Amino acid sequence: MKFIRIILFPIVPFYYLITWLRNWLFNVGFKSSKSYEFPVICVGNLSTGGTGKTPMIEYLIRLLKDEKSLATLSRGYRRKTDGFILADENANADTIGDEPFQFYRKFNNISVAVDADRQAGISKLRSINPQPEVILLDDAFQHRKVNAGFNILLTAYHNLYFNDIVLPTGNLREPRSGANRADLIVVTKCNKDISEGEKKKITSKLKIKSNQQLFFSYVDYAMDVLSESDSKELSKLPKFTLVTGIANAKPLVDFLVEKGLKFDHLEFSDHYDFRASDIENLESKSLILTTEKDYVRLGDYKSLEGKLYYLPIEIKIDNAVQFNAAVRGFIN
Rank of each mutant, 00 (worst) to 15 (best):
Lys189Ala: 10
Asp254Phe: 01
Lys189Asp: 12
Lys262Thr: 13
Ser229Arg: 12
Thr241Gly: 01
Val257Thr: 12
Ser227Val: 06
Leu206Pro: 08
Ile246Asp: 02
Glu228Pro: 04
Ser204Ala: 15
Leu252Lys: 04
Asp193Arg: 11
Thr188Asn: 06
Asp230Asn: 14
Ile185Lys: 13
Leu226Arg: 11
Val253Glu: 12
Lys239Asp: 12
Leu226His: 07
Lys199Thr: 02
Ala222Ser: 14
Asp224Tyr: 09
Leu226Lys: 15
Phe263Gln: 08
Glu258Ala: 12
Thr241His: 08
Val225Asp: 00
Phe255Glu: 09
Ser235Trp: 06
Pro238Asp: 02
Pro251Ala: 03
Leu252Ile: 04
Glu258Gly: 14
Thr203Met: 12
Lys200Gln: 15
Asp264Gln: 08
Phe215Thr: 08
Thr203Pro: 00
Phe240Ala: 03
Ile246Lys: 02
Thr244Pro: 00
Leu214His: 09
Val257Arg: 10
Thr203Phe: 13
Lys259Leu: 06
Val257Leu: 12
Phe255Tyr: 15
Tyr221Met: 06
Asp193Tyr: 08
Asp220Lys: 15
Tyr221Ser: 07
Phe216Tyr: 08
Cys190Arg: 04
Lys232Cys: 06
Ser227His: 04
Ser195Asn: 12
Cys190Leu: 10
Ile194Pro: 11
Ser231Pro: 01
Gln213Asn: 13
Lys205Met: 13
Gly260Val: 01
Tyr221Arg: 08
Lys259Glu: 11
Leu184Gln: 10
Lys262Gly: 05
Asn211Ser: 14
Val187Lys: 07
Val187Phe: 07
Ser231Ile: 08
Asp220Ala: 14
Phe216Pro: 05
Glu233Trp: 09
Ser204Thr: 15
Tyr221Gly: 02
Lys207Gln: 14
Asn248Ile: 08
Ser235Phe: 09
Ile246Glu: 00
Leu206Trp: 08
Asp220Gln: 15
Phe255Asn: 10
Phe240Leu: 04
Lys189Leu: 10
Phe263Val: 02
Ile194Asp: 09
Ile208Ala: 01
Ser235Asp: 15
Ile246Gln: 00
Asp220Thr: 11
Val219Pro: 03
Lys192Asn: 15
Ile194Arg: 09
Thr203Leu: 14
Asn211Pro: 00
Asn211Thr: 10
Leu206Met: 13
Val243Asp: 03
Pro251Met: 04
Ser217Ile: 04
Ser217Gly: 10
Lys201Pro: 03
Leu242Glu: 02
Ile185Gly: 01
Lys239Pro: 03
Phe216His: 04
Lys250Tyr: 12
Ile194Asn: 05
Asn211Gly: 05
Phe216Asp: 06
Val186Leu: 13
Val187Ser: 02
Ile194Gln: 08
Leu237Trp: 07
Thr203Trp: 11
Glu233Lys: 15
Pro238Leu: 10
Val243His: 04
Val243Pro: 05
Asp193Trp: 06
Leu234Tyr: 02
Lys201Gly: 11
Leu252Cys: 05
Ile202Phe: 06
Lys236Arg: 11
Lys232Gln: 09
Val257Glu: 12
Ile246Phe: 05
Thr188Met: 07
Met223Cys: 13
Val225Ala: 03
Gln213Thr: 14
His265Pro: 07
Ser235Glu: 14
Tyr221Asp: 02
